[in-house]
Design a protein around this nucleic acid. Structure first.
Lengths: 190, 190
DNA sequence: CGCCGTATAGTCGGTTCCGACTAATAGGGA
DNA sequence: TCCCTATTAGTCGGAACCGACTATACGGCG
């Protein structure tokens, strides 16, 4: 039987609840505060759906419903023992086994020919510039975090995406250069 | 106004119809034949939905409904001029502008700490082995295609994913080594 | 002290996506 | 010739996902 919950936002929720009980809105705020907005797609609708699904499977449980001042009620959740176990097992699996992900860029590259050589090279060079900016942003975020004395492990995924972006940038530049130089020949039927 | 159709399968459909008219089932078969099954997620349900959406927006049009022998009716579609234009514009945009994609591995890495150092290093090393296999597979596919005299451009996206996998593999091995050597310190609270 | 922008907290309806299932035919072997 | 399997072609109901929208409260400023 495949895993019952696939949305990775559930992973974020579990991770947070392992620290301490929280209500959904607080989860979203905490994730954003920690720069996790680019790791997880934090959409209110998805978040509440996910929390509900986790509760249904008993990976988390509502622990109290508080009302502070006259603000709307908030349901605070905590992880269960089952949730803690599933979290680690899921994590382990996600790291061990690469899964197919169909990124949009790959789809586009597969029809690169349709742009014609000049436009394709232009587009790749522009992408390279955008990637360079993002890499700068990642470096800044990393330096800032290390500066505040936080352990590297807290931003390890940023190190990874930085590495991945660098590789993509290199490929984009090299491929653009190959197109410009003519060493990547362009067939007629495009 | 954002793009009306986001599913990249629509890109594949348009790309095929620019070659010649086809019916949906034939599109799926053709894509699989060309090893595009790892670039596009070809699911029958999604495919028929996508074709319908494309027709609704007049990017493609039904050109005939044939019945061969006693087989069920098949609706053959062709691209429209609007479809051809949108295809190229969309392609251009997808190549130029990196978009956030939230891959599962990044999500998992962001909680790598929860695995503990030994298990994390194990998991990363296993991933590296899986990636090495995939890279071999990509090399085989590339060699085969070039051997058949097909232009490199037809498999350019395979060159890209091969490059991306290699970068991921390098990172996984390096990070595992850093964990093993203790140069990536592990905080207590995990 | 009334007004406005921002933060808090979440709802809801629609679209998209998925994959198990259906159904018919062609081809091959016993 | 009859059955079995593979191939052809597509349907359908439900799960997942999204993001615009709602509603209240707080704090500062003129």
């Amino acid at each position: 039987m495949p895993r019952k919950i696939r949305n990775t936002l559930a992973l974020a929720v579990l991770g947070l609840l392992l620290e301490r009980p929280m209500h959904p809105y607080e989860m979203a705020a905490t994730l954003r505060e920690r720069h996790k907005g680019s790791t997880f797609k934090i959409n209110p609708g998805s978040l509440y759906d996910t929390v509900e699904a986790l509760a249904k499977h008993r990976w988390i449980e509502p622990v109290e419903t508080v009302r502070e001042g006259n603000r709307p009620e908030r349901t605070v959740y905590a992880h269960t023992e089952l949730g803690r176990q599933e979290f680690v097992a899921w994590l382990d699996e996600l790291v061990r086994e690469p899964v197919a992900e169909y990124p949009k860029f790959v789809a586009a590259v597969s029809y690169l020919g349709a742009l014609g050589p000049d436009r394709a090279a232009d587009a790749l060079e522009e992408r390279a510039r955008h990637l360079a900016e993002r890499i700068d942003g990642a470096d800044t975020a990393l330096a800032e975090t290390v500066g505040k004395g936080a352990p590297r492990l807290f931003m390890i995924e940023v190190e990874f995406v930085r590495h991945a972006w660098q590789a993509e940038l290199d490929w984009a530049r090299d491929t653009a250069a190959e197109i410009r130089s003519g060493s990547l020949p362009w067939p007629e039927n495009f």
